[in-house]
Design a protein around this nucleic acid. Structure first.
Lengths: 123, 123, 123, 123
DNA sequence: GTGGTCTAGACCACC
DNA sequence: GTGGTCTAGACCACA
């Protein structure tokens, strides 16, 4: 897995888990990879994955069963959507509007690029 | 001036200068506030402004005349647009598409919010 | 480490790192001293080393792995040579030619002095 | 006149005067342009030219006759050569040797470039 | 532990 | 007055 340098790695891992849930790869109330497994898979220090899991636990997207592992919560889907939406509305949107305004771009013009993006992620 | 905590202050100052240029408040090839002046104005340490100016100089948006001060470059408008556009395309857009996709939002739906934003910044 | 007063310390540190690489003391893709370590070693403020590392990173001679440290890039050797060569050609050479011309010296006459210099740095 | 950014402007002006003398454009014991004239000609602040003249006076290359102007000294040629030579030997040479050594260049290899340079400055 | 940022204050050369 | 550099020391997020 490759990481952007504009954001903390642990948050990018948290986002990755959210996406797995939102895309229904990881159903609710089910075991997810252990800290060590995921650390090996995405090639980071286990501490960093642990931090991501901690964060997701606070957001009630996953929870921990001691000695067994981490599980998605029963309403993981709802919580993950809530989290992503809040980030989007509170952080991304204002900056987006500012950039569109300064660069003289209209939201319509984003449509072609977005459709292309969707195609790539469906295949 | 108020700063977001999600980004380094010196980069926010650089963005501020870019906006001044893009909004044509600061025409090309013209003197801009000295390091000390801007530091007082936005209430930060002169070193922080210096760092922003350093950055903008690398991006060829401003340049220095020794012992006199900083000036916008003749093609500051073009360079500032290039810089903002590159940030937008390389950083903002991918994240935006990802969020839209996961949250099931279409670009059209951003239009009302954007129009509202423009009204606020136009008056 | 002793510094000339004719050049900024951070640039002299950057040159020092370049030399370590060109002399193959520091192989490509390998960890280099942390900002604090080098600061203690050459007896300057960590900020000054940081500035040198920043500069070298822009020149693609070193890069950073977050939370771990700075590393020479895989093609550090090539990049360091490119940097030193560009400084030499663009800054040193024109002045050299001018001086040789005005003082009536031929390049051949530099050979004895250069051989002596090499002997000193070889032992 | 264009200035390098690696050296103070007043020193570059001083070098320019030295060259005029060494090239015998300005004979010994003869009036040279006034501070104001030269300032207009090379497009800098008169203070900067004044500083160059001050410096050249210390080096006994020019001298001032109050109310009349600046003159080359009777042995300006000798003094100018002495000054340039000292700068060359003490400052330029050590750096040159270092660069040649690191980049693996031999003094011989400078000859073609130097010959080309001379041709350009003769025509 | 690592780098990254910021402040405060100083000193310098230069214009 | 201007920018440029450096120090000392602090705080932070991150791995």
């Amino acid at each position: 897995m490759e990481f952007r340098e504009s954001q903390a790695i642990y948050l990018q891992i948290a986002d990755y888990v959210c996406e797995k849930i939102l895309l229904k790869d990881w159903p609710p109330d089910q075991r997810i990879p252990s800290v060590r497994e995921l650390a090996i898979q995405v090639e980071v220090n286990p501490n960093t994955v642990m931090r991501a899991y901690d964060f997701l636990q606070q957001e009630q997207i996953i929870h921990n069963q001691r000695g067994i592992g981490f599980f998605t919560t029963p309403d993981a889907l709802k919580q993950a959507a809530r989290y992503r939406r809040s980030v989007f509305v509170e952080k991304d949107l204002p900056q987006l509007y500012r950039s569109l305004f300064l660069l003289g771009i209209e939201p319509d013009e984003l449509k072609p690029g977005f459709d292309k993006y969707k195609k790539q992620n469906f295949s």
